[in-house]
């Protein structure tokens, strides 16, 4: 193995349009460079070959986090650390805060962008799992058009996204949370700074003690992050009674398709989906003051 990167061409577009044109013109041969945390490590390890990098770091107007009536808006260059320190995120989108806060390296959070984290398309992403539970939308720009798509549809497989040639992600929109929203994020790791063996994010809307709406997102247990829809069904409309929670946890474990790798085993992961889903819902119950 080598200690240096391979030589490549370097582009530094000044606008999103310019970036998108470069991506269109060069196609597979180039990659977007955001924080570089993931991309450069992979280039050094020769896991990917690139002929050029399109560095978006100096495109103005992509580094922001703000909340308005449409929800929480995050730019493509907004770092994890900026989000972690943002009052809006901490106070109003606790689920996202908890996921980011669970990433321990300050260095990674200073450099790494949330969008970059999502674009790696690893099923282990804490950020992606929490944003899936929050029903985030990806804002995408192409050479001639812009579109947006639910994060839920953004992943096609391991390290594969729905981005078309020439497209890049310009931001994330997290819709406003309805009244009575609660969330819980949980993960299991080998040591504190490791990426997750399993992670779970649950967001539920509770009204008069009843579960009106719920989204359960799971990571590291399938080729992409996934929603546990059957588990959600088991909770929707209940008062989160113990039996319903246990039933949901069981269903979640049945819905996943984990593998054995260096971090954990398939068997353990499946079992932990059950434990974490149950614990996450229980945590929401405690926070919401739901009894039983």
């Amino acid at each position: 193995m080598v200690r240096v990167l391979t030589p490549f061409e370097y582009f530094e577009p000044k606008t999103v349009e310019e970036a998108s044109n470069l991506l269109r013109d060069y196609g597979e041969k180039v990659r977007v460079l955001a924080g570089g945390v993931d991309l450069l490590a992979r280039i050094r390890r020769r896991e990917i070959q690139v002929e050029g990098l399109v560095c978006i770091q100096r495109i103005p107007g992509l580094d922001y986090v703000r909340q308005d009536s449409e929800g929480l808006k995050i730019g493509a260059l907004t770092t994890l650390r900026t989000l972690e320190r943002s009052q809006e995120v901490r106070e109003n989108y606790r689920l996202l805060f908890d996921a980011i806060h669970s990433i321990h390296s300050i260095q990674v959070k200073n450099m790494g962008t949330a969008v970059g984290n999502l674009c790696i398309a690893t099923p282990a992403s804490d950020v992606a799992v929490s944003l899936l539970a929050l029903d985030a939308q990806m804002k995408i720009a192409g050479p001639s058009s812009e579109r947006s798509m639910p994060l839920e549809n953004f992943y096609l497989g391991v390290k594969r996204t729905a981005l078309q040639p020439g497209e890049l992600v310009t931001g994330i929109l997290v819709p406003p949370l309805p009244k009575g929203s609660f969330g819980a994020f949980m993960k299991l790791v080998r040591t504190a700074t490791d990426i997750a063996k399993v992670n779970v994010a649950v967001r539920a809307t509770l009204r008069n003690g009843g579960c009106e709406e719920v989204r359960i997102a799971l990571g590291s247990v399938a080729p992409t992050i996934v929603r546990a829809r059957k588990a959600e069904e088991a909770l929707r409309g209940t008062r989160l009674e113990r039996e319903a929670v246990v039933e949901a946890a069981e269903r979640a474990a049945e819905e996943v398709n984990p593998i054995t790798d260096i971090r954990s085993t398939a068997e353990y992961r499946r079992e932990m989906v059950k434990v974490l889903t149950r614990r996450a819902v229980e945590k929401i119950k405690v926070e919401a003051g739901v009894k039983g």
Binding site: M1, H104, T191, A192, T193, D194, I262
Partner: peptide, 25 residues
């Protein structure tokens, strides 16, 4: 220390795959 059973390649070949204690442990 994980060695691939088929290829003999060391899979725990860096600090991300081979975990030493951080201050949290």
């Amino acid at each position: 220390y994980v060695i691939n059973k088929k290829t003999g390649v060391v899979e725990s070949d860096n600090f991300n795959t081979y975990r030493i204690a951080t201050n949290y442990e």
